[in-house]
Amino acid sequence: MDRVLPQPTPETQHFWDGCKAGELRLQRCTDCKDAYFPPRPFCPKCGSRSVEEFKATGRGFLYSYVINHRPRPDLGTEPHSIAVVQLDEGPRMMTNIVGCPQTPEALKLDMPVEVTFQSFSDDISLPFFQPVGA
């Protein structure tokens, strides 16, 4: 079964283009300087339309997660992590933690993680995270 994939909008296209190019792209407000996610063409803190895209470090730490045991055919049959990482730039994003066993013992809260991309179609690569050095 094909993986459920995002359908980009004009406001998010730069993010998905970045993933395809192997870059995690965030946005920040040029007025209040805050980085934010998910993408939108204005700052959710101050309402300014003066925003810019930038390449994030792709590093962060494991903020929280569950290990899903319910069937989700497009992700296979084994239990898998559904995680939220906090990026070094501040924003948090949902992801899967890959490159390690999907167990509570291997998935330690606050462990450093780094982004890795996996291509699922000509247009979409999903950003996953793996333990640093995995």
């Binding site: 993986r3 995002p6 980009p8 998010t12 996610f37 989700r72 559904i82």
Partner: peptide, 14 residues
């Protein structure tokens, strides 16, 4: 799939 949740949460398997 074009909502923010559809783009940035649904692909990860919830």
């Amino acid at each position: 799939g074009s909502s923010l949740s559809g783009q940035f949460e649904a692909p990860y398997g919830p």
